[in-house]
């Protein structure tokens, strides 16, 4: 049995639509869950218990559950709670944002804690508010030390989009599967899928490395 690479060419527009959905899901997830994660991280390190306890519980609860369960949860429960269907993309996106914000929160928290406490104190001693000290002094430095972990997490988010398959969203793996069923060419198609995931993730890490280089600070 020889390879028939034409199946990929013939179904490329359909496959690319799936890929586009995956990329969109991953990109919007990162854009929304990172700032959310920053807020949760600030709650985690807060001195105020009424902020720290809920933030800590939220992070632990989310991190101890598999993503697929969170996806189901949003897919089946949110329509019941809101009383109307929300669509697969929206429900998956909500699940992803909530789930990954917990992971981003932990990355941001360790990044913040890697900045010497004296930096915060120096900023406060010049009359900056806590929020200003965080915004201008601590977070920029924290961001630099967490760039590698953030890049890794973005790759995980992108790979995680395959889970949207379980609720029928037409992400890239799902479209690949649909074409496979129709053409009976799993070898070519799954090889192609592997290549695509590899390329997208490689591009992501190269981009991250360049960002890191740019953020390099003379010490």
């Amino acid at each position: 049995m020889g390879f028939d690479w034409a199946v990929i060419h013939d179904n490329l527009p359909f496959l690319m639509r799936g890929l586009w959905n995956s990329v969109q899901l991953a990109a919007i997830t990162v854009v929304l869950s990172f700032p959310l994660g920053c807020i949760v991280a600030l709650g985690r390190i807060s001195r105020r218990r009424w902020l720290r306890y809920p933030a800590t519980m939220l992070v632990h609860a989310l991190r101890s559950n598999p993503l697929i369960l969170i996806v189901f949860w949003f897919f089946f429960l949110v329509p019941i709670l809101t009383g109307r269907p929300v669509g697969d993309f929206a429900s998956v996106l909500a699940a992803f944002v909530v789930f990954f914000s917990a992971y981003f929160a932990e990355i941001v928290r360790s990044g913040i804690q890697s900045v010497r406490r004296g930096q915060l104190e120096a900023a406060l001693s010049t009359g900056l508010t806590y929020a200003q000290a965080m915004r201008f002094i601590v977070l920029p430095q924290a961001l630099r030390s967490m760039t590698p972990s953030l890049a890794t997490e973005c790759v995980i988010v992108f790979q995680g989009t395959t889970i949207a398959y379980v609720v029928g969203m037409r992400e890239f793996l799902h479209t690949t599967f649909l074409v496979t069923e129709r053409t009976m060419r799993p070898v070519e198609l799954y090889l192609f899928a592997a290549l695509v995931y590899f390329v997208v993730c490689l591009a992501g890490s190269i981009f991250a490395r360049r960002l890191e280089g740019k953020a390099g600070i003379p010490r």
Binding site: R116, A122, A123, T126, G127, L128, F136, Q141, I217
Partner: peptide
Amino acid sequence: IGMVFQHFELYPHLSVLDNVTLAPRIA
């Protein structure tokens, strides 16, 4: 109240000039 620390605590990601101007501008 100005404060000077044992370990300087200059902001490593800002130039010396920005270190000095940050608080007057922001605060």
